[in-house]
Amino acid sequence: MKPVCVLGNGQLGRMLRQAGEPLGIKVYPVGLDAEPAALPIAQSVITAEIERWPETALTRELARHPAFVNRDIFPRLADRLTQKQLLDQLGLATAPWQLLADRSEWPQVFSRLGALAIVKRRTGGYDGRGQWRLRADDTASLPAECYGECIVEQGINFSGEVSLVGARGEDGSTVFYPLTHNLHEEGILRTSVAFPQADAAQQQQAEAMLSAIMHALNYVGVMAMECFVTPEGLLINELAPRVHNSGHWTQNGASVSQFELHLRAVLGLPLPQPVVFAPSVMVNLIGTEVNLAWLQQPLVHLHWYDKAVRAGRKVGHLNLTDSDSSRLADALNALVPLLPPAYASGIAWAVAKL
Results as ranks from 00 to 15, higher is better:
Lys2Asp: 14
Val6Lys: 06
Gln11Val: 04
Met15Phe: 02
Arg17Ile: 01
Ala19Ser: 09
Pro29Ser: 08
Glu35Ser: 14
Val45Gly: 02
Glu51Met: 12
Thr59Val: 08
His65Lys: 06
Ala78Trp: 05
Gln83Ala: 12
Gln89Ile: 00
Gly91Tyr: 12
Gly91Arg: 10
Leu92Asn: 06
Pro96Glu: 12
Gln98Lys: 10
Ala101Asn: 10
Gly130Trp: 09
Gln131Leu: 03
Trp132Phe: 09
Arg133Trp: 10
Leu134Asp: 06
Thr139His: 04
Pro143His: 06
Glu149Cys: 07
Glu149Lys: 13
Gln154Leu: 03
Gly155Phe: 06
Ser159Asn: 08
Ser159Tyr: 07
Leu164His: 03
Gly169Ile: 03
Gly169Trp: 08
Pro178Ser: 00
His184Glu: 01
Ile188Thr: 14
Ser192Arg: 00
Ser192Glu: 12
Val193His: 03
Gln197Trp: 03
Gln202Tyr: 06
Gln203Ala: 10
Gln204Asn: 11
His215Gly: 02
Ala216His: 14
Leu217Ile: 10
Glu226Val: 04
Cys227Trp: 12
Cys227Thr: 13
Phe228Ala: 08
Thr230Trp: 02
Gly233Cys: 07
Asn237Ser: 13
Asn237Gly: 04
Arg242Ala: 09
Arg242Tyr: 10
Gln258Gly: 02
Gln258Lys: 06
Gln258Arg: 01
Leu261His: 07
Ala278His: 01
Pro279Arg: 13
Ile286Cys: 12
Glu289Ile: 11
Val290Ala: 15
Trp294Asp: 05
His303Trp: 01
Lys307Cys: 03
Ala308Pro: 10
Ala311Trp: 01
Gly316Ile: 04
Leu320Tyr: 05
Ser325Trp: 00
Ser325Pro: 11
Leu328Pro: 07
Asp330Thr: 13
Leu339Cys: 08
Ala350Phe: 00
Leu354Tyr: 05
